[in-house]
Amino acid sequence: MTSSAAASTNASDFEFPVIAMIGTGNMNGAILAGLTAGRGDGAEPIRVTTRSTKSAEQFADDDAVLARAAEDDPEANREAVRGAGAVILGVKPYAIVDALEEIAPALDPGAVIISVAAGVELATMEAHLPEGAKIVRAMPNTPATIGLGATGIAAGRHADAEAMALARAIFESVGAVVEVPESGIALVGAVSGSGPAHVYLLIERMIEASERIGLSEEDARALVVQTFRGAVEMVARHPELEPAELRRRVTSPNGTTEQSVRVLVESGLEDRFEAALRANIARSEELAAEHR
């Protein structure tokens, strides 16, 4: 599998077309926040659709957003996508086909359709859109809500370089982006899509262990959280250094760190991580089969 994190686009300088967002769940909400941050005066509002009137009302005083509620307007989704150059589908996987069939007649021929629905393959979506539709499949993660997301994007059959540049710019507004073939989306899901849960589990277990050896709950949490934050930032700030080298710099021969690292390595941590990722990918493939 090949991937590309190169040719990065500066999202703040990108000239976006009219954007429509179908659904405003956590992920679309994060993307919306990224796209509206720092938008200049006179920029076309981002068209958003919600199921309920109450959800749409939260955007009433936001000039950067034009919200419609399906509860009030059965044509809300079709009106939102009409004339839009990019359509971001944030509905649940089980609702993707219905959403595509609903908006298909109103789509502009050149519109780029971006799906963040896990487990729904490009071929499945292409079957419910006009021939030649430019579809991009994306796998973002929840840290996008604080602008630190990691997203993998994959091109459909007709998604050209321009379509991919647009998708990249959209997700770079909330973090980092890599381009992969569709076969890599499940891998992205295992590593970064589900990855935050794996990291939270490590933090959780390290806090619990710290308490068992005698630290207070408050001190254990403060030290562990700051340690993870600092270690990750060291890796991010020093791309010239492999994580293994950073680890070696903390690990003095016959020292205390060497002993704790040895216990972790001998516990089979490496194999456990690989097994966890493979289990994740297997489940992703099962879900994809259910949506075909």
Rank of each mutant, 00 (worst) to 15 (best):
S3G: 14
S3V: 09
A7T: 09
S8P: 01
S8I: 11
T9R: 07
T9S: 08
V18N: 10
V18E: 14
G23N: 03
G25R: 06
N28H: 10
G29W: 06
G29I: 08
A30V: 09
L32P: 06
A33W: 03
L35D: 12
A37E: 12
G38D: 05
G38Y: 04
R39H: 09
G40Q: 07
E44W: 00
P45H: 03
P45W: 03
A56F: 05
E57L: 05
A64H: 04
A67F: 03
R68F: 11
R68W: 04
A70W: 00
D73V: 02
R78L: 13
R78D: 12
R82G: 12
R82P: 05
R82C: 14
G83K: 11
A84S: 15
G85V: 13
G85N: 13
A86L: 08
A86H: 06
I88E: 15
G90M: 15
K92A: 14
P93V: 14
D98V: 14
A99N: 07
L100C: 15
A106L: 13
A106E: 14
L107A: 15
L107M: 15
D108L: 08
A111Y: 05
I113R: 09
V116E: 06
V116P: 05
V120D: 07
V120F: 07
E121P: 06
E121K: 12
L122P: 10
A123C: 08
T124W: 12
M125K: 14
A127K: 09
A127F: 07
A127W: 04
L129C: 11
P130R: 13
G132T: 02
G132F: 03
A133V: 05
K134E: 04
I135V: 15
V136A: 04
A138K: 06
M139Q: 01
P140W: 02
T142W: 02
A144S: 06
A144Q: 01
T145F: 02
I146P: 04
G147D: 04
A150Q: 12
G152F: 10
A155K: 09
A161P: 01
A163D: 08
L166F: 09
L166I: 09
A167V: 03
R168Q: 15
R168N: 11
V174F: 06
G175Y: 04
G175C: 06
A176H: 08
P181N: 09
S183W: 01
G184H: 05
A186D: 13
L187F: 04
V188Y: 08
V188N: 07
A190H: 09
S192W: 06
S192F: 10
G193M: 09
G195N: 11
H198K: 00
I203T: 11
E204V: 06
A209C: 07
A209S: 12
I213Y: 05
L215N: 03
E218L: 00
D219H: 01
L223R: 02
V225E: 09
Q226S: 12
F228G: 10
R229G: 03
G230A: 12
V232A: 15
A236Q: 13
R237M: 11
R237P: 00
E240Y: 01
E240R: 03
P243I: 01
A244Q: 13
E245G: 00
E245I: 07
L246V: 07
R247F: 01
R249E: 09
T251K: 03
P253L: 05
T256D: 10
T256P: 00
T256F: 05
V263F: 01
V263P: 01
V265A: 08
S267A: 11
G268C: 02
L269V: 14
R278E: 13
I281N: 11
A282F: 00
A282L: 02
S284V: 02
